[in-house]
Design a protein around this nucleic acid. Structure first.
Length: 86
DNA sequence: CATTTGACGCCAA
DNA sequence: TTTGGCGCCAAAT
C-alpha cells in the first residue's frame, strides 16, 4: 500500500465474481484516473493467481489482454456472467 | 540517471 | 464506423 501499484493490485483483488472493471475504473479507484495504462503494465509484470486480473477489461467493453491467453479470459468472464457471449 | 515500452483512453479526421 | 494520433504514468532496459 502507499504506492499506486499496490493500490491497483488491492483493488483488482477486491473485484467480486461476475463483475468487471475497466482499466480506467481501476485506475480511478487506485487514486489516479490517468494511469489506466499503468494498470495494464503492472498486471503484465505481476500476473498473479491471487489477482483476478481477468476481471479487468477495457472501458469500451473489449477484453484487452491476458497473460494466459485472451481467449481464456473471455471464457472465464462468460462463465461468470460478467459479459454476454456474442 | 535517461529513454523506451506497454494487458489503455479519448479525441479528431 | 474505423483509423490514426496524442496523452499519461509506472516499470523495464
Amino acid at each position: 500500500m502507499s504506492t499506486f501499484t499496490d493500490k491497483v493490485l488491492k483493488v483488482v483483488k477486491e473485484i467480486p465474481r461476475g463483475k468487471t472493471l475497466s482499466y480506467k475504473e481501476v485506475a480511478i479507484l487506485a487514486g489516479n484516473e490517468k494511469a489506466s495504462r499503468v494498470v495494464g503494465t503492472i498486471m503484465s509484470k505481476n500476473w498473479d493467481e491471487s489477482i483476478p486480473c481477468h476481471r479487468v477489461i477495457c472501458s469500451d467493453g473489449t477484453l484487452g489482454g491476458y497473460n494466459r491467453g485472451t481467449e481464456k479470459k473471455r471464457l472465464r468472464l462468460e462463465e461468470e456472467g460478467a459479459i454476454e457471449r456474442k
